[in-house]
Amino acid sequence: MSGRALPAPLRAFRRPLGAVAGGWLAAVILAALFAPLLTPYDYDIQALKEAYQPASARHWLGTDEFGRDLLTRLIYGARTSLSVSGIAIALSVACGMTLGAAAAWFGGWFDRAVTVVVDLTWSFPEILIALILVAIIGPGTTGTMVAISVAYLAQFTRLTRAQILTLKSETFIEAARSLGAGNAHILFRHLLPNALAPVLVSAMLATGDAIILEATLGFFGLGAQPPVPSWGGMMSAGSALVFKAPWIIIFPGLAVAVTVVAINLFGDALIAELDIRARMRRQV
């Protein structure tokens, strides 16, 4: 079977949409990583003389109200947006998988308690949960991260729990037991590795949503605090100037939209490559 040896994320690149989407994501991530090398400007040095410039050879995407290069801020903004949503989702997956696996594994009152709490959070929109949490913790990068990770906790807990519950009844689990396997072996060598693929793909798709959530919080001024740029913060600043200097809001808006679409398309390609569409739906 040719190509089976390649890991699924690389195989996803062989699909046309997967390649385009993956290419964009790789470019955004690399740009965020190497931001200082890519641009001669600083994101926070103001040059009021150069404020409100449209796109030009010097400033490819123009400048903002303080005369800062918009492309520079966009690239540094990618740093904030991607790291905040990425770390938040990673945190959420780690907690959600632990919680979901524990609920499915132990069952009984613990499972019932987790299910009730998860179902309760599930019934609120993520933005509402995030807003309440930011209000409690206070605005800023850390607050946003915690808020986002809690907002998505229910999703990963549910998905993991459902995966583990189904896998638990597979014969290969019974086979391992019949050989003398203990709980740790069954959990870490069979259940979790098999549950991982759907959870990771769903985490990737959730990162797209998290970028929007991060931008929304930033738009309300609750995310990364100035002068640190974030896509949501930039859009917020640009919203007042939408007629005077539309590019200030348009480019960060486009960055969010294209990145989120790319994540979804790449996620779809991954699901197809991993052949787990049916398992992704199993959430109850």
């Binding site: 597979e170 014969t171 290969f172 019974e174 086979a175 391992a176 019949s178 050989l179 003398g180 396997a181 203990g182 072996h185 060598r189 069979h190 590795p193 098999n194």
Partner: peptide, 29 residues
């Protein structure tokens, strides 16, 4: 003692290679 199961499709972990399947009894013991 050991068991051979009815369903040869679900009695092997899909993520394991045959070498891993056959090594598992040793790992477990």
């Amino acid at each position: 003692m050991a068991m051979v199961f009815q369903d040869p499709y679900s009695s092997l972990d899909p993520r394991y290679s045959l070498a891993e399947v056959l090594a598992e009894p040793f790992v477990v013991q």
